[in-house]
Design a protein around this nucleic acid. Structure first.
Length: 358
DNA sequence: AAAGCACCCAACCGCCTTTAT
DNA sequence: CATAAAGGCGGTTGGGTGCTT
């Protein structure tokens, strides 16, 4: 049993909005507001439209200060980095881009940015990756994104983007130097085993690219937020379910440096020059892939939340995990993302574009 | 010139969450 | 506390448009 429809579908107009309808809706809302009830609004306005349709039209096109098209490079960067971090949570991403709507960003990503970043690389070493999931080419060279043995397209795209960026940022880096690879995280080992068991990539080079960056200091949890005042740090800790007395947590501010009052003393983050100078974007991606909460064991529901592993049937037994609490809508509403923390990968992005012949 | 194709994007659909009763 | 209604969101669709053959 589905729920009852929100309106009488036989008596509502569908399809594109006419200028007259737009004018009616806009005039009414400008004068009276939405009244907090979209379902009742069409009748008041005198429109034969579903309330949801009115809401969508208002939010996406009629409300003031909406921008359409012409995404800047800066906006591309933001969308890209947030997508890698949180996936297709368009409303959260849109909240970081004033004047942009989730629908606009979603369309932009699906029709342009994704192709720009993932689909057009010359002699891509990601051809190999295609055999483990994500888009593949059929005999005619057409993209076939229906083939994803292990990961959802979203999860795979995010992983793919991460790895491409890592590799591009430093060709001699960890990813391309097996000698630097650490002992694998149990979860990562399991992930690889699962993927290999699919028999789609019997040779390891594919997964070699999927290896994580080096492990953080054991027990370290790192957050990425702007100007971490003491109050803010405590708020963030609370948000993450971390005790306020837990000083194994550091928060990185907009200048990419950790707040000195919160730098862990005993177990602290490696504070090499390279570490401090590393871009927030780099840190954020690493954070996404493996450092979120090294000592965190998830609850079932939290585990289920993370699609790329959920889809791989990874058991929580004996594995280390990271929190996804940071990315829920509630934290977004608390402006956890209202920062510049993940939003300055400009140079990386430019290098990336060059490398991929965009 | 026209048919076929690819791309773009506005709008819809249905599910999940939140709010009201 | 339970239920229904409304809000909100992400995925998908389909029509319009421009490009290619």
């Amino acid at each position: 049993m589905g729920r009852a429809p929100c309106c009488d579908k036989a008596n509502v107009k569908k399809g594109p909005w006419s200028p007259e309808e737009d004018a009616k809706l806009k005039a009414y809302i400008d004068q009276h507001g939405t009244g907090g009830n979209w379902i009742a609004l069409p009748q008041k306005v005198g429109l034969k439209r579903c309330g949801k349709s009115c809401r969508l039209r208002w939010l996406n096109y009629l409300r003031p200060n909406i921008k359409h098209g012409g995404f800047s490079e800066e906006e591309d960067n933001i969308i890209c980095s947030l997508y890698i971090s949180i996936g297709s949570r368009w409303s959260i991403i849109a909240a970081q881009l004033p004047g942009r709507t989730d629908n606009d960003i979603k369309n932009y990503w699906n029709t342009r940015l994704k192709k720009k970043l993932l689909g057009r690389r010359k002699q891509s070493n990601m051809n190999n990756m295609s055999s483990m999931g994500g888009e593949t080419k059929d005999a005619n060279g057409q993209e076939d994104d229906s083939y994803s043995p292990g990961l959802s397209s979203s999860a795979f795209e995010r992983l793919q983007l991460h790895m491409q960026l890592q590799s591009l940022q430093n060709p001699l880096s960890f990813y391309n130097n097996p000698a630097l690879w650490p002992k694998l995280h149990p979860l990562q080992e399991k992930m690889i085993q699962n993927l290999q068991s699919l028999n789609e990539f019997p040779n390891t080079p594919l997964m070699e690219h999927a290896l994580p960056s080096p492990q953080p200091v054991q027990g370290q949890k790192v957050g990425f937020y702007e100007s971490p005042t003491a109050a803010k740090v405590n708020e963030l800790k609370s948000l993450h379910g971390i005790s306020s007395s837990d000083n194994s947590v550091a928060f990185i501010n907009e200048n990419n440096s950790m707040d000195s009052t919160h730098v862990p003393k005993a177990k602290g983050i490696e504070q090499s020059n390279a570490g401090i100078q590393a871009s927030v974007f780099q840190a954020e991606i690493d954070n996404f892939l493996n450092t979120k909460t090294v000592d965190f064991v998830p609850q079932e529901d939290q585990m289920a939340e993370f699609d790329c592993f959920k889809e791989m049937n990874v058991s929580k037994d004996g594995v280390l995990w990271w929190s996804t609490n940071d990315f829920d809508a509630r934290s977004a509403s608390l402006n956890a993302w209202e920062s510049t923390s993940v939003l300055r990968p400009q140079q990386i992005f430019q290098e990336y574009e060059l490398g991929y012949n965009l």
